[in-house]
Amino acid sequence: MNCNGRLVDLSKPKLMGILNLTPDSFSDGGKFNNEKNALKQAENLLKNGATFIDIGAQSTRPNAEYLKADEEIRRIGNVISLIKKEFPESLISLDTFYADVVKFGFDEGIDLVNDISAGQFDSELLSVVSKTGLPYILMHINPSYESMHEKIKFDDIILSINRFFSEKLLELNHKGIKDIILDPGFGFGKTVDDQYKIIDEFEYIGFGKYPILAGISKKSFIYKPLGKQPNEVEKETLDLHLKLIEKGAKIIRLHNPETLKL
């Protein structure tokens, strides 16, 4: 995978550490939304094994505040360029569904785009990603921001995800986006049972050509059925992470990379 001129070997799984620049994230909101704390957390993620740092300025949990692109840019500020200056070996993923934020992030030095919307929330996003030449994370999700958390009754969740990917990959390839990572979209519009089915049948997702990312860290389908809080399911999450890696996951997106030694 070509990350802004740097080749990344995904033959062995890699970790993507989460850096939330939000005051309202469900797990760590407000901890890292200033430059000093963001830099410290970036250092912590890298020291504990993260290859990628995934920076997001908008929470996408249910009932979160909806932000426009200019507010995301304001929240990000100089964080990307500061991390790049302090940790030039870092690879930065930008978690956004806005074309203007991708443009800003590209100028600041990002290495890949993590878009939860599959290009559905901003009609200009995929064209901008194509112009940057950056790798793109394609996630399975409902078709609009308003519906992204609506639980859908799938006859076969794996078949539905693969059909979605097949249609979207045609669009991405047509636009010239070449380096693509697939994400089945844990936590977005899926029942608890369906999400465990995705884990159980993870090896059947995708088409053997694209690396798959799994983002289950602190998701409610793990902790809520157990009557626990997001920070109380480290062992359960570790077991699921190991299972996902065994079934072919190439990138694990998580809050605490120190819990998973690869």
Score class of each variant (00 low, 15 high):
1 M>F: 11
5 G>L: 04
5 G>H: 04
6 R>G: 01
9 D>H: 08
12 K>W: 04
14 K>N: 11
15 L>W: 05
17 G>M: 11
17 G>C: 15
18 I>C: 06
19 L>M: 08
21 L>R: 06
21 L>W: 00
24 D>N: 09
26 F>M: 15
26 F>K: 03
30 G>M: 06
33 N>W: 05
35 E>P: 01
37 N>L: 15
43 E>N: 10
46 L>W: 08
48 N>Y: 09
50 A>T: 09
51 T>C: 06
51 T>S: 15
52 F>T: 00
56 G>H: 03
61 R>A: 14
65 E>P: 01
66 Y>N: 15
67 L>Y: 14
72 E>T: 13
74 R>H: 13
80 I>A: 11
82 L>Y: 03
82 L>Q: 11
83 I>E: 01
85 K>M: 03
86 E>N: 15
86 E>H: 07
87 F>G: 05
88 P>R: 04
93 S>K: 10
93 S>V: 07
96 T>D: 00
97 F>Q: 02
98 Y>K: 08
98 Y>L: 13
99 A>T: 09
100 D>M: 07
101 V>L: 07
102 V>H: 00
104 F>S: 04
104 F>V: 09
106 F>S: 04
112 L>I: 13
113 V>Q: 00
113 V>G: 03
115 D>A: 08
117 S>A: 11
117 S>D: 02
121 F>L: 07
127 S>V: 02
128 V>M: 07
129 V>I: 10
130 S>W: 00
137 I>M: 05
137 I>Q: 08
138 L>T: 00
139 M>T: 01
139 M>D: 00
140 H>I: 06
144 S>R: 08
147 S>P: 11
147 S>T: 15
150 E>Q: 09
151 K>R: 12
151 K>C: 11
153 K>L: 08
154 F>A: 09
154 F>K: 09
157 I>H: 08
157 I>K: 07
160 S>E: 14
162 N>H: 05
164 F>E: 01
166 S>M: 06
169 L>I: 13
170 L>Q: 15
170 L>N: 13
171 E>A: 06
172 L>S: 07
176 G>N: 09
177 I>D: 07
177 I>H: 05
182 L>P: 07
184 P>K: 02
187 G>P: 02
188 F>R: 05
192 V>H: 06
193 D>Q: 12
194 D>Y: 09
199 I>K: 03
201 E>F: 10
203 E>P: 03
203 E>S: 13
205 I>K: 03
209 K>T: 10
213 L>S: 10
215 G>A: 15
217 S>R: 05
217 S>A: 12
226 L>T: 08
227 G>P: 10
230 P>V: 01
232 E>W: 14
232 E>A: 02
232 E>T: 11
232 E>S: 09
234 E>I: 13
235 K>R: 11
236 E>W: 08
237 T>L: 00
237 T>H: 12
238 L>I: 15
238 L>D: 00
241 H>G: 02
243 K>Q: 06
244 L>I: 08
246 E>W: 10
254 L>M: 13
257 P>C: 07
257 P>H: 03
259 T>R: 11
261 K>F: 13
